[in-house]
Design a protein around this nucleic acid. Structure first.
Lengths: 245, 245
DNA sequence: GGATGTGAACGACTTCACAGCG
DNA sequence: CGCTGTGAAGTCGTTCACATCC
């Protein structure tokens, strides 16, 4: 996953100097690590499932067990949310969910647009889980004039030219880039120019964005390569009798 | 049993006892870090592009610049490949590529199967970049009897029941799970039983695999949530410090 | 000069271990 | 008793700075 070294994430990294100031007065609490944030979404989804299953309180052990994370790690992470846990009992599921949603910034709705109408976009749009988390796709864009004017999953497809207008009208903040690598940078630039605040990039290329625009990159080919590498390691030089669990 | 290192966010996750792993893994001297491996695929793709563009040697600065990584970091990573760099000159592009491919284990062909024929699978199969890296999809599986017997991108769709046979016959080593969350664990178990060595999971759920089977998880919904979180953070103190480029 | 390779400093992340509370 | 919260220790990863070589 591409990582830009330019922009720091405000509120994420903290210097030693903050160390003394343990108790945050409001908003920004102790130190929120990037790694913890990476797990928050996982906690959230699992907790919602626990809730559906009628589990009123969860322990760090249960959560960790379900996600393949140590209990200590879970407690450290959840401590960032304030003192929600009750010794001897655990964490109230619903309260934890609310706190996580607040911390992740998804206790509100987000509107997003998608550029590039292909199979990947269709897969994304068809996954109804987004709506439950407050994400709403409001417009699609494609270069192909044939596609413009049509709909996918009930969402209109527009020409790239109308991007500034549509983004302004819908107030969309997030943009998904699902176009070939060659077109990706231009599309990203257009999204930024149109006022988009964050980009989820599926094109197999590194994007350059101005500071102030957030970026998450998902490179499917890279994932497969890494899997091959892991398998390569697992069966190569290791000739031990691995205790299968 | 208690799980150790769980999946990092867009996870690089290995079901293997980690404690002694670092020693066991390398027949090659320097300690190979997990983080470096995560960047190897990125280096590889960029280098191949440099080669196409006729660049015979690259410096750590060039590579880093192109990928948003510091030059020191690039040198540290590439040092794991041996001493390929020439002071004052840089790294020979072709040699670096070869070394990376060898290290990643993709200087050979990999065969893979995909379970779940939907839009996501189609998107994967359509991306021709895999073949260039030596990945070949040899079979698709789906529960839907309507789909069985048909083809996608020239690849046959089989019933789940024939998985053991097909996997054995094709010698497939990698499996892609692109089914709904509810079915994912069962599918994964079937893949493992059929002899698959590594799984790329797109279902929004955590899979449990026996040691010896590698796992990479890509959760699209989580990615969007994390993007929202980054934007959420950026919202407040917008930093215009770094020069836009 | 220009670039590599690398120990050492630094910082981030995880695990340990245990006090303390319900 | 079970479970949280948290310093402290340990591990991992990145950056710095500079000797070194072409």
């Amino acid at each position: 996953m591409a990582r830009r070294n330019g922009p720091r994430f405000p509120g994420l990294s903290m210097s030693k100097s903050d160390k003394e100031q343990n108790h945050a007065v409001n908003g920004l609490e102790p130190r929120l690590s990037r790694a913890s944030v990476g797990r928050f979404s996982l906690y959230l989804r699992r907790l919602q499932r626990f809730l559906r299953e009628g589990v009123p309180t969860v322990s760090s052990g249960m959560l960790g067990e379900a996600l393949g994370i140590t209990d200590a790690q879970v407690r450290k992470d959840l401590a960032y949310l304030g003192n929600l846990g009750q010794p001897g009992i655990g964490y109230p599921t619903q309260e934890l969910i609310d706190a996580l949603r607040g911390r992740l910034g998804i206790n509100r709705d987000w509107t997003a647009v998608v550029v590039g109408v292909g199979n990947l976009s269709r897969a994304l749009l068809r996954y109804r889980g987004f709506e439950k988390q407050g994400f709403r796709f409001v417009a699609l864009f494609d270069v192909d004039p044939e596609k413009v004017g049509q709909q996918v999953e009930g969402i209109d497809i527009y020409a790239l030219e109308s991007m500034p207008e549509i983004v302004r009208n819908t107030g969309a903040e997030l943009g998904v880039v699902a176009v070939p690598a060659e077109a990706a940078q231009a599309v990203a630039d257009a999204l930024v120019a149109a006022g988009i605040r964050g980009i989820l990039n599926f094109a197999p290329t590194a994007l350059r964005l101005p500071a102030g625009t957030s970026l998450i990159a998902v490179d499917l080919a890279v994932q497969l390569e890494q899997l091959a590498f892991l398998v390569h390691l697992n069966q190569g030089p290791i000739d031990h009798t691995s205790p299968t669990h």
